[in-house]
Amino acid sequence: MSAFATLGGGCFWCLEAAFRPLRGVLEVTPGYSGGHTLRPTYEEVSTGTTDHAEVVRIAFDPREISYEQLLDVFFAVHDPTTKDRQGYDVGPQYRSIVLYENEAQKDAALRKIKALSGLFKPRIVTEVKPLEHFWPAEPEHHRYYDKYPQDPYCQAVIAPKVGKVVQRFWPLLK
C-alpha cells in the first residue's frame, strides 16, 4: 500500500536526501511541478521562467509514516518564510510549496501551516495548491547526494539537512 506526497522547498537534491532515510518512505523522486511547461528540463526550470518548482515526489506507506509526519520533516529541513529562495539557491524554482493530491492532504498542509505560524517570523509563505503534473527530473539528478557526498554543495547544504533529520527525527529512521 502506498500513497504519495509532492513537496518543494529548495533544491530537490536536498529534499531527496532528507526524506530517503525515513521508515515507510518507499521512493523519493526529484522532479518539477507547479508550472506551465510540458516536460520541462532542468535547464528550462533553472531559468525561473517555467513557473515550475524543484520538488520531490515521495512514495510512502501510510501504515509506517503519515503524511503529517512527512510535513513535520518538510518544515524542519527548509525555511518556509523565504519567498523564492533557500539559502544561496534563488528563484521561483526554489520556492516552498505543497502540492496536494486530495482534500485530506490539503487540509493537513493548511493545519500544519496554521499550527506553525506562531513559531516562524516572518510569516510562512509556503504555497498550497493541487498537484496537476509531476515531471521526473533527468537521471543525473536522482540520488545526487548518494553519488556525490564529497561535492562541496552536498557537504555545505545537503549534509546538514540530513543531519537534522537523523538528529531530530531518529524514531522515524529505517
Rank of each mutant, 00 (worst) to 15 (best):
G118N: 09
I58M: 05
R85V: 08
A156P: 00
E101T: 12
L71F: 01
P122C: 05
D61M: 05
T126G: 03
I58F: 05
A59M: 03
A115P: 06
P92Q: 12
G118F: 08
K121L: 14
I97C: 07
E43Q: 14
H78F: 10
V157H: 00
L119E: 11
D84Q: 07
A115W: 08
V162P: 01
P139I: 13
H142K: 13
H52Q: 05
Y42L: 08
E101V: 07
V125K: 00
V157K: 00
V128L: 01
D84F: 09
P149A: 08
W170S: 15
F60E: 01
E103V: 11
V128T: 02
V157L: 05
L116V: 05
F134L: 02
A156S: 12
A137P: 04
E103I: 09
A53E: 03
F169P: 06
Y144Q: 01
D107R: 11
D89K: 04
A108T: 10
A109W: 03
S96F: 02
P80T: 06
C154H: 02
A137E: 06
K174W: 07
E54F: 11
E54K: 08
Q86P: 04
P171Q: 11
V165P: 13
T50S: 01
F120E: 04
V128N: 03
Y148L: 15
W170T: 12
D89N: 06
V157A: 05
G163F: 07
I113Y: 03
R168K: 15
G91L: 06
I97F: 03
V77M: 00
L110G: 01
D84M: 08
W170R: 13
V125L: 01
D51P: 05
K161A: 06
K164S: 15
G118H: 07
D79W: 07
S46R: 09
T82E: 03
P92R: 13
H142R: 15
F134Y: 01
E138W: 10
V165S: 12
F60V: 04
V162R: 01
Q105R: 03
K112M: 10
L71I: 01
Y100S: 02
R168G: 07
D79R: 03
D61W: 04
G118M: 02
Y145M: 04
A109I: 06
P139H: 10
H141F: 13
P80H: 08
Y88V: 15
E103L: 12
A108G: 10
A59Y: 00
E127M: 12
G91F: 07
A108K: 11
H78N: 10
K174Q: 11
A76M: 07
E140F: 14
D151H: 15
V98M: 09
N102K: 02
P62H: 05
Q155S: 12
A159S: 14
K83W: 14
F60N: 01
E103D: 14
E44R: 11
V56K: 00
V128Q: 02
V73P: 08
P62C: 07
P149E: 09
G91E: 09
F74C: 00
K129L: 07
